[in-house]
Simulated assay, not measured.
Amino acid sequence: MSIGNTPGSSLARKLNLLLDTAEAEGRKVSYNDISAAMKAAGTPLSRGRWHYMRAGTGPAVKKVELLQNLAEFFGVNKNYLRDDGDDELPARVEAQMELLTTLREKKVRNFAARQLDGLTPEVLLQIRNLIDQQLDGHDEND
């Protein structure tokens, strides 16, 4: 989903991060899961509203109870999703995002290694070391 600079873009970014984090933790969260939880919490959520909240394309969501119930569903601070809430990533979300980044880097390395099949082990080690040096140098410059 493309998230621009709209009134709901901050909420959309946060919701999508929470969904990615849940997936990284092995929970595939569907709209039906969220809808059932919100209905049980007394803040029903339509599929259309969920879509525009995730896309950041609709009006800003002002219903505090809905935002707090969504935050509770994902296990983060109840004010995390509010516009005036804490914009800092919850520690669990931040840790999962770092893990995902590491896993993606390893997948790239493994893919490259498979593509270089037939090279001597020495050459493969040199290539791996060059990649590691580039990644380590990139992290220092960020």
Rank of each mutant, 00 (worst) to 15 (best):
L100R: 14
D84A: 15
R92V: 15
V93M: 12
S35R: 02
E23S: 12
N79S: 13
D33E: 03
A36W: 07
R13P: 00
E88L: 12
K78G: 04
Y31S: 09
M38D: 00
V64K: 05
K39I: 11
S35M: 04
R27F: 02
M38K: 03
D136M: 10
G4H: 08
N5D: 02
M53L: 12
L17F: 07
P90M: 10
S35H: 06
G75W: 11
K39H: 13
D33R: 07
P90S: 11
L103N: 02
K63A: 13
M53G: 04
M53R: 01
A36V: 04
S46F: 04
T120H: 10
T120D: 15
Q96F: 08
R128F: 08
A112W: 00
S10H: 04
D86S: 14
T101C: 09
L17Q: 08
N69R: 14
I127R: 05
Q133C: 00
A113N: 12
M97R: 15
E23W: 00
L100S: 12
N110S: 04
R114T: 10
A91K: 13
A24V: 00
E88T: 12
D87G: 13
N129W: 03
N77A: 14
K63Y: 06
V93Y: 10
I131T: 06
A95V: 12
D84E: 14
L135F: 10
I131E: 02
L116T: 02
D20P: 03
E23N: 11
N69S: 13
N5S: 02
G42Y: 00
E88A: 15
L116A: 08
S30I: 09
W50S: 09
L100N: 12
L67T: 03
K14N: 07
I34W: 08
L135M: 14
G118Y: 04
R92C: 11
Y80L: 13
M1Y: 01
V29F: 02
N129D: 11
R104G: 14
N110M: 01
A12C: 05
K39F: 00
K107G: 02
R128V: 06
G58I: 10
L124M: 11
M1E: 14
L81K: 11
E72M: 13
